[in-house]
Measured scan of single mutants.
Amino acid sequence: TETRTFDSEEEAKKAQKEAEKQGRTVTITRRDDRWEVRFD
């Protein structure tokens, strides 16, 4: 599991799309003013 933090939802969604192309499961969580993206 890898976790990355982004400043914008746009960036988080971009990372999510990339990871899903690779067949990974992605979870996006809102953390205050940041977006946390978890790759499984």
Results as ranks from 00 to 15, higher is better:
16 Q>M: 14
5 T>F: 15
18 E>F: 07
13 K>W: 09
12 A>H: 00
31 R>W: 07
35 W>M: 00
27 T>L: 06
13 K>L: 15
19 A>F: 13
13 K>R: 13
9 E>A: 06
25 T>D: 06
3 T>W: 13
5 T>C: 05
9 E>T: 02
27 T>Y: 08
28 I>N: 01
34 R>H: 13
1 T>V: 13
28 I>K: 01
10 E>D: 09
18 E>P: 01
8 S>F: 04
25 T>H: 14
16 Q>I: 11
9 E>P: 04
13 K>T: 09
9 E>M: 08
38 R>A: 10
24 R>S: 07
11 E>D: 11
34 R>F: 14
36 E>I: 14
31 R>F: 12
8 S>M: 03
20 E>I: 09
7 D>Y: 14
32 D>I: 05
35 W>V: 01
19 A>E: 05
25 T>N: 10
31 R>A: 07
7 D>K: 09
29 T>K: 07
5 T>H: 09
23 G>E: 02
12 A>Y: 02
30 R>V: 10
16 Q>T: 05
9 E>S: 03
35 W>E: 00
5 T>V: 15
13 K>C: 08
20 E>M: 11
8 S>T: 15
14 K>C: 12
32 D>Y: 06
22 Q>P: 03
19 A>M: 12
24 R>E: 05
27 T>H: 09
13 K>M: 12
12 A>N: 00
24 R>T: 07
15 A>L: 09
6 F>N: 01
10 E>L: 08
20 E>C: 07
1 T>P: 12
6 F>A: 01
16 Q>R: 08
36 E>H: 05
14 K>Q: 14
16 Q>S: 08
15 A>E: 05
22 Q>Y: 12
28 I>P: 01
30 R>N: 07
34 R>E: 05
27 T>R: 06
7 D>A: 12
3 T>V: 15
37 V>A: 03
19 A>H: 05
12 A>W: 01
10 E>T: 06
38 R>Y: 08
20 E>W: 10
40 D>V: 14
25 T>A: 09
17 K>V: 13
15 A>Y: 15
20 E>L: 11
11 E>N: 04
4 R>V: 12
11 E>W: 02
18 E>L: 09
36 E>V: 12
4 R>W: 15
6 F>Q: 00
1 T>D: 11
12 A>G: 01
26 V>I: 04
40 D>Q: 11
37 V>K: 01
24 R>L: 15
29 T>R: 08
20 E>F: 07
26 V>Y: 02
18 E>W: 10
40 D>M: 12
9 E>Q: 06
4 R>P: 03
40 D>T: 13
3 T>Q: 06
33 D>I: 03
3 T>F: 13
19 A>D: 02
31 R>S: 07
32 D>A: 11
20 E>V: 08
40 D>K: 06
6 F>H: 01
34 R>L: 14
2 E>P: 08
13 K>A: 06
26 V>S: 12
40 D>P: 05
39 F>M: 10
7 D>H: 10
21 K>S: 14
31 R>G: 03
32 D>G: 15
32 D>N: 13
7 D>S: 11
38 R>E: 07
17 K>L: 13
31 R>V: 15
1 T>Q: 11
9 E>G: 02
12 A>V: 04
30 R>D: 02
32 D>E: 13
9 E>H: 09
34 R>Y: 14
11 E>Q: 07
20 E>A: 09
19 A>K: 02
30 R>W: 12
30 R>S: 05
31 R>Q: 09
20 E>N: 06
39 F>D: 06
30 R>E: 07
38 R>H: 12
7 D>L: 11
5 T>P: 02
36 E>Y: 09
2 E>V: 13
25 T>S: 10
27 T>W: 07
27 T>I: 11
7 D>F: 14
27 T>E: 06
16 Q>V: 14
11 E>Y: 03
1 T>Y: 15
16 Q>A: 15
22 Q>R: 10
4 R>I: 14
12 A>L: 02
28 I>C: 03
39 F>Y: 14
25 T>L: 11
30 R>H: 12
14 K>L: 14
17 K>M: 13
12 A>E: 00
32 D>S: 06
28 I>R: 01
14 K>N: 12
36 E>M: 06
29 T>W: 06
21 K>A: 15
27 T>M: 06
19 A>S: 04
14 K>H: 12
7 D>W: 13
27 T>K: 07
18 E>K: 06
14 K>T: 10
39 F>G: 03
23 G>Q: 03
33 D>V: 03
13 K>V: 14
25 T>W: 10
36 E>W: 05
37 V>T: 02
3 T>Y: 14
2 E>W: 15
18 E>Q: 08
10 E>P: 04
19 A>L: 15
35 W>H: 01
18 E>D: 10
4 R>C: 13
3 T>M: 12
22 Q>N: 13
14 K>E: 13
16 Q>C: 14
24 R>V: 14
16 Q>Y: 10
37 V>R: 00
4 R>F: 14
6 F>Y: 14
2 E>A: 10
39 F>S: 05
17 K>W: 12
10 E>M: 07
13 K>F: 11
23 G>F: 04
20 E>D: 04
37 V>M: 08
11 E>K: 06
33 D>M: 05
12 A>P: 00
24 R>A: 11
28 I>W: 00
23 G>N: 04
9 E>Y: 15
5 T>N: 06
34 R>T: 11
3 T>I: 15
39 F>W: 11
6 F>P: 00
40 D>H: 13
32 D>Q: 10
17 K>F: 12
37 V>F: 02
23 G>V: 01
5 T>Q: 08
17 K>G: 06
29 T>S: 08
25 T>Q: 11
21 K>R: 12
34 R>Q: 11
24 R>D: 04
16 Q>P: 00
8 S>V: 03
21 K>W: 08
36 E>S: 03
21 K>M: 12
25 T>K: 14
40 D>G: 10
38 R>W: 07
34 R>N: 05
29 T>H: 11
2 E>L: 13
35 W>G: 00
2 E>D: 09
7 D>P: 08
10 E>F: 08
32 D>K: 09
20 E>K: 06
18 E>R: 06
15 A>N: 03
32 D>F: 08
26 V>P: 04
20 E>Q: 10
15 A>K: 02
25 T>P: 07
21 K>Y: 09
35 W>K: 00
24 R>M: 15
4 R>K: 12
11 E>I: 03
9 E>I: 10
5 T>S: 10
6 F>R: 00
11 E>P: 02
20 E>S: 05
33 D>H: 07
3 T>N: 06
23 G>I: 01
14 K>R: 13
19 A>V: 03
16 Q>W: 07
21 K>P: 01
28 I>G: 00
39 F>Q: 04
30 R>I: 10
7 D>V: 07
37 V>P: 00
1 T>N: 11
23 G>S: 03
2 E>H: 12
18 E>G: 03
39 F>V: 10
22 Q>K: 08
39 F>E: 05
22 Q>G: 08
34 R>A: 08
30 R>K: 15
1 T>R: 10
36 E>G: 01
39 F>L: 08
13 K>N: 07
27 T>V: 10
20 E>T: 06
22 Q>H: 12
15 A>H: 08
40 D>A: 10
8 S>Y: 03
30 R>Q: 14
15 A>Q: 04
1 T>W: 15
31 R>K: 14
8 S>Q: 03
1 T>H: 13
37 V>I: 10
37 V>H: 00
21 K>E: 15
25 T>F: 12
9 E>V: 06
34 R>D: 04
29 T>P: 00
7 D>R: 09
32 D>T: 04
36 E>D: 04
25 T>M: 08
37 V>L: 13
26 V>L: 03
2 E>R: 08
19 A>W: 13
34 R>I: 14
28 I>D: 00
16 Q>D: 01
31 R>H: 11
36 E>Q: 05
36 E>A: 03
16 Q>K: 12
33 D>Y: 04
5 T>W: 15
6 F>E: 01
11 E>R: 04
22 Q>D: 12
28 I>E: 00
18 E>T: 05
12 A>K: 00
17 K>E: 14
21 K>I: 09
21 K>G: 13
40 D>W: 13
19 A>R: 02
13 K>D: 05
7 D>I: 08
37 V>G: 02
4 R>D: 03
6 F>L: 02
1 T>K: 08
13 K>S: 06
12 A>M: 03
4 R>A: 09
27 T>A: 05
